[in-house]
């Protein structure tokens, strides 16, 4: 079943001589439960693609369908709600709210939706993330790996259609990186979670079902 499809997705920054084509007519289809890695050099358009998929940026032209819905036809508020329910974002620098503790950060998307937190789901998730003993810690009391696991928890809690991870291991040491990748793989296998991950590291990319290589805003190679 197809969960995500882009058609001729294009993003152009700037005008005239400053014009940069970050994404050039990218068409892509993702099946539910797929784990995709996007690789490419700096400036190849990886992050732009990811942000457009997540509905946090606006394309210059082209469309993004999630679950058959054209997300850029939604108004701003509806798009925000779409992000909160259907997309889980994971950043290189975690982007946790420094004044909220682990549990509060993880449940933030639910809280924004005024949804009750299912205790059991939360506990299972904390166990999966290995954060059972860190529930009430603030981000600055956690290691980098723990912070990233918290942000993965935040992405998973809403049971979103897709998880978009922007270099989730970029700021971590090897051991923590392996743990994070393992965790993503596990959620992909156990929950049939669709994941699209950007990475520099080819070793890490290898865990994915499919590797897409971007160059100058175009897909140059797809590896199964």
């Amino acid at each position: 079943m197809e969960i995500l499809r882009t058609e001729n997705l294009t993003k152009i920054y700037g005008k005239g001589t400053n014009k940069v084509v970050a994404l050039d007519n990218v068409s892509l289809s993702v099946e539910k439960g797929e784990f995709i890695a996007i690789v490419g050099a700096s400036g190849s358009g990886k992050s732009t693609l990811l942000h457009l998929l997540g509905g946090v940026d606006k394309p210059t032209s082209g469309t993004v369908y999630v679950d058959g819905k054209d997300i850029y036809k939604l108004n701003e508020d509806a798009l925000a709600i779409f992000r909160r329910r259907e997309v889980g974002l994971i950043y290189q620098f975690y982007n946790l709210i420094p004044i909220l503790n682990v549990v509060e950060n993880i449940t933030l998307p639910l809280a924004l939706d005024n949804r009750e937190v299912d205790k059991e789901t939360l506990n299972n998730l904390l166990k999966l993330l290995g954060l059972e003993n860190r529930k009430n810690h603030l981000p600055n009391e956690l290691s980098g790996g723990q912070q990233q696991r918290t942000s993965i928890g935040r992405a998973l809690i809403t049971n979103p259609a897709i998880i978009l991870a922007d270099e989730p291991t970029g700021n971590l040491d090897t051991k923590s990186s392996e743990e994070i990748v393992e965790l993503l793989k596990k959620t992909n296998k156990e929950y049939k979670q669709t994941i699209i991950m950007i990475t520099h590291n080819l070793e890490i990319a290898k865990v994915a079902d499919r590797i897409i290589k971007l160059e100058d805003g175009k897909i140059v190679k797809e590896v199964e």
């Binding site: 508020d77 925000a80 909160r84 709210i97 924004l112």
Partner: peptide
């Protein structure tokens, strides 16, 4: 700023 941007990216509406 960054905090706000993050809140928006995880789906906080303008109204909220």
């Amino acid at each position: 700023r960054q905090e706000f941007a993050m809140l928006k990216s995880i789906g906080m509406t303008k109204k909220e």
